[in-house]
Amino acid sequence: MQRSNTIKGLVLYPVFLLLAAAILYPLVWMIYSSFKDNPAIFANVFALPSSLYLGNYVTVFTEGAMGLYFRNSLLISVVSVAGLLVFSSLAAYAFATFRFRGSTPLFMILLLGLMVPPQALIISGFKLMSILNLLDTYWALIFTYFGWTSFGILVLRNFFQAVPRDVKDAARVDGAGHWQMFSQIMLPLARPSLSTIAIFYFMWVWNEFIYPLVYMQTPEKYTIPLGVLFFNGRYTIEWGLQMAALAVATVVPLLVYYVFQKQFIRGILAGALKG
């Protein structure tokens, strides 16, 4: 067993390391290049920075409006994720608890939301937003994201259904109504599932690109991905600036990933396996 592990390692580690390098190098390159000024990058694209040049970051936050994009993204993500959690947990409770005619077809219609490619909705979505007078507002994005409860409903319905009857019955004996049952028994039990969903939705909303591209017109209202694209379009030959903008855009998802890796992975499995 010991010997076969050594052989396996000799074969597999080079593959693992090569692949890890292919994944990490472009990102590491992006980050260290953001600390080089433009002449230094053009002199040698591969070289590590000789000194820590912060000028790119200053420009990104002053001439570029990266701070503003950051704030927009944060605001939209937090409000959207909060709404998605509330709406999907409420609906999931209903699907897990109440038996009524049409509940299965209704649930199937909701699952449709997992399959629809967002870009298939942009043309009529744009017209809808202009009719509702929401174009170029945060609400255009937030309301759109509120429509993506399918994933949360799916995961939480499964969870609520799996709560043992004993727990539910005990609460009923104590005279809990549906509202108390939901808010005081079910939600606290569902905390791990809720955090999984929250992380998953946060990543999705934070990185979402096509709706801001279509719905937002004033650059001051851009979210991070759109803002980075806009900024980098203005400074196509200023690679140092581009790298700094990209690094700023990447830092939040990466941090969230490293802190909440478990929840994120659970989210992937839940979304794929129960979808």
């Binding site: 990185n207 998802p253 990466l254």
Partner: peptide
């Protein structure tokens, strides 16, 4: 890489 924006 999955968590990084496709724009980036």
């Amino acid at each position: 890489p999955t968590v990084i924006s496709l724009v980036v």
